[in-house]
Write a protein that binds this DNA or RNA. Structure first.
Lengths: 97, 97
DNA sequence: AAAAACCGCAACCTTATGGTTGCATATTAT
DNA sequence: ATAATATGCAACCATAAGGTTGCGGTTTTT
């Protein structure tokens, strides 16, 4: 998940999809400096990570966002920062003891 | 940010720091299959991303978590999913029109 | 004073990653 | 029917990423 979003191009693709809704590969390639195939590869990676899925519609395949995994990431970060707070509390208690 | 957390080793380091609190490099290396230098490299990357910072204490340097950037990531994901919801709404309105 | 523990630096190696190019295939428009 | 559009597949390339090893320096410990 983090790895999938770790690439700037892929993060930009997610941002573009979040704004523009479902889009074809050529549409997603417009604006970037990359070739169509490069974008395709990134889309495959995002798809494998479950962040995005494609629907074939005639000669074009449209990709659209799948926001559920993003929520999972948020939950994970919530747990991590909660644990960190607890660790700080324990440290505080230990020092004051 | 995402790139920094995209590596499984680094994600594990963050998790360990969130539970155990500040730790030295050797402590963070224990449990992993990696060399001390490998862990050091990962810590440098996390430090550059602002996720972690080090404090030298005698002969050891202790690393501790910096949860603020994690909150930023959560905010970013919030914005992305909000935009996606709006895109869906617009699509719905367009179809029903 | 020696020995041990903890760390930093630098060179080096291997492989995944991001990217391009060329060609083939399936739809849509003229 | 033909041309144009949109994509898929595969080979190939360059570089960055992850990792190890060796060595030297500084605190602690004994």
């Amino acid at each position: 998940m983090f790895a999938a979003l770790g690439d700037p191009t892929r993060l930009a693709l997610v941002a573009k999809l979040s704004r523009g809704g479902a889009s074809s590969i050529v549409q997603l390639t417009e604006g970037t400096e990359l070739s169509r195939q490069a974008v395709t590869k990134h889309l495959k990676i995002l798809e494998q990570a479950g962040i995005v899925h494609s629907v074939r519609s005639g000669r074009e395949s449209r990709y659209e966002l799948d926001p559920a995994p993003l929520a999972e990431v948020k939950d994970y970060l919530d747990r991590v920062s909660a644990e960190w707070d607890q660790a700080l509390m324990r440290l505080k208690a230990f020092v004051e003891e």
